Simulated scan of single mutants.
Amino acid sequence: MEPDHNDIHEQFLTHFAANEPAIRAYVRRLVPTRHDAADVMQGVALVLWRKFDELDDTEHFRRWAFGVARHEALGWLRDKARSRLTLAEDVLHVVACESTRDDDRLSAQREALEGCLEKLPTHHRKIILAAYAPDAAIQEVAGQSGRTVAAFYQWLHRMRLRLLNCTRQVLQAEGLS
């Protein structure tokens, strides 16, 4: 008995939502800018949805999605080949292969960092995230934190070290360092 359309839709959304940040990070490593990655991700999402019923084993969704993403990025790069900012296809292939290989390590690091961020006081976490938001103006974030720009950079440096040490400890405790 075949699953109905709603079940397939739900399965796809579950897998896509769980893997979208990793797929986006993978695409981001293959194209020059975040804007380009957003363009490529639209195509990736469409192809993944259209071909989801062809996926034999949903356990391998991420690896399959990376393959689709690499294909879409190559197509995008071919379309933009006149731009000096695009990578040669053979270089892109190397980057894509290394990115796929590094995905587990990067996912573990990302999860550890997210856990370490959650351990921070809420106001510290909000300020750090504001400092790394797209188009963030450090002068404004420093002002929101009640610090001068110089003092904010020093504070941010201390917080980065704290997060780095926490992340390393988590990864080491999990045997992933």
Rank of each mutant, 00 (worst) to 15 (best):
4 D>A: 08
113 L>T: 13
85 L>K: 14
130 A>Y: 01
32 P>K: 04
65 A>V: 01
37 A>G: 03
92 L>V: 11
144 Q>C: 05
81 A>R: 15
32 P>L: 03
65 A>G: 07
45 A>T: 06
32 P>M: 05
13 L>M: 13
99 S>N: 08
74 L>N: 15
102 D>W: 06
129 L>A: 02
128 I>Q: 04
158 R>D: 12
72 E>F: 01
13 L>R: 14
162 R>Y: 09
24 R>W: 07
93 H>P: 02
60 H>I: 09
2 E>W: 13
155 W>D: 09
174 E>W: 05
159 M>Q: 15
15 H>D: 10
71 H>L: 14
161 L>R: 13
74 L>T: 12
11 Q>M: 10
155 W>V: 04
144 Q>N: 08
161 L>D: 13
18 A>C: 03
140 E>F: 01
140 E>M: 06
36 D>Y: 02
53 D>K: 08
35 H>K: 13
27 V>P: 02
118 E>F: 09
64 W>K: 00
89 E>N: 08
88 A>V: 10
45 A>K: 11
172 Q>E: 15
12 F>G: 05
127 I>T: 13
83 S>Q: 10
64 W>C: 00
48 L>I: 00
100 T>D: 07
40 V>D: 00
27 V>F: 00
45 A>I: 01
177 S>F: 07
25 A>E: 09
113 L>A: 11
116 C>D: 08
82 R>A: 14
11 Q>T: 06
59 E>V: 11
95 V>W: 05
76 W>I: 02
65 A>E: 03
148 T>A: 05
27 V>R: 02
166 C>W: 03
68 V>N: 08
38 A>Y: 01
177 S>G: 12
170 V>R: 06
106 L>P: 01
103 D>G: 01
119 K>S: 12
118 E>Q: 15
146 G>W: 00
1 M>W: 13
173 A>N: 09
17 A>E: 11
91 V>S: 12
99 S>W: 05
117 L>W: 03
109 Q>E: 15
31 V>H: 06
69 A>S: 12
112 A>T: 02
61 F>K: 02
131 A>Q: 07
71 H>G: 12
53 D>S: 12
128 I>V: 05
105 R>G: 12
31 V>Q: 06
177 S>Q: 10
75 G>Y: 06
61 F>S: 00
126 K>W: 09
93 H>V: 09
38 A>V: 04
93 H>W: 04
74 L>S: 13
5 H>K: 14
13 L>V: 11
71 H>K: 15
59 E>M: 13
96 A>Y: 00
79 D>N: 13
